[in-house]
């Protein structure tokens, strides 16, 4: 028996919003520790890694490991039926071929349940090694979203260059070029609004705008985003979801032929 209850359905709605442009289907792996999802986009350029810890749920029970293959379009349809303030409970029997979502309004006057068929997905999982990154950049997630949106008007790629002076995001295309430089916040009064740069080695890497824009769909999950970079390895874009876990996106760089 698997049962996981969240007081706010909005977290699950936002998680789905954050992955549905990249993935059409995905496997939710549930065990004692919580719910995990790892999946690559169709072109195998980006990867989503989601963790929702058991202790972040209002109620969590998982007697046996459960693997639930879900069509994310169908899941989106179902979650649209939940009010933001509704609680949501996901339930599945051991070895079941369906999952049930139960939505309860705050006063419990309205209770609805939606049963969805599960899919047998044979998706490839990648082993991601523990990596010490040369640069990590923390910044307000809304600022990152704004930059990606602004720069993608000019070019298809964004060059991210991190040095001891700060971090620079650049692009160029038919109409011209654009650069945005961010320096580390001088005095940190509010951590959520700070730009914090840790750099061991300077790194410059180039990434596809389109994917960075997909990642920013997670903006509402966290006030801050962290970018981790090392030379010639995928970028990690991490949004920590308060009290419950994180969503990490990995993006393969573009390189000179």
């Amino acid at each position: 028996m698997f049962e996981a209850r969240l007081l706010k359905s909005s977290i699950l709605k936002k998680v789905l919003e954050a992955i549905k442009d990249l993935l059409t289907q995905a496997t939710f792996d549930c065990d004692d520790n919580g719910i995990q999802l790892q999946a690559m986009d169709n072109s195998h350029v980006a990867l989503v890694s989601l963790l929702l810890r058991a202790d972040g749920f209002d109620k969590y029970r998982c007697d046996r490991n459960v693997t639930m293959g879900m069509n994310l379009g169908s899941m989106t349809k179902i979650l649209k039926c939940a009010g933001d303030k509704d609680t949501v409970t996901m339930k599945a029997q051991d070895n079941a071929d369906t999952v049930t979502f139960v939505f309860e309004s705050p006063n419990q006057e309205k209770v609805s349940d939606y049963e969805m068929k599960l899919m047998n997905l044979d998706l490839e999982h990648l082993g991601i090694p523990e990596t010490e990154y040369s640069c990590t950049i923390r910044m307000p997630s809304a600022e990152f979203a704004r930059m990606c949106r602004d720069l993608s008007q000019f070019g298809e790629s964004i060059v991210i260059s991190c040095t001891k002076e700060g971090v620079k995001f650049s692009t160029s295309g038919d109409i011209g070029s654009a650069n945005i430089k961010l320096a580390q916040t001088a005095s940190i009064d509010k951590e959520d609004e700070a730009v914090i740069i840790e750099m061991d080695e300077p790194v410059t890497l180039t990434f596809a705008c389109q994917y960075l824009n997909y990642f920013t769909k997670a903006t509402s999950l966290s006030p801050q985003v962290q970018l981790s970079m090392s030379a010639d390895v995928p970028l990690v874009v991490e949004y920590r979801i308060p009290d419950i876990g994180h969503i990490r996106y990995y993006l393969a760089p573009k390189i000179e032929e």
Partner: peptide
Amino acid sequence: SLTQTKLKSFFTPK
């Protein structure tokens, strides 16, 4: 010109 790499050139299948 730049080429988009794939994740599999960095991470190994499990």
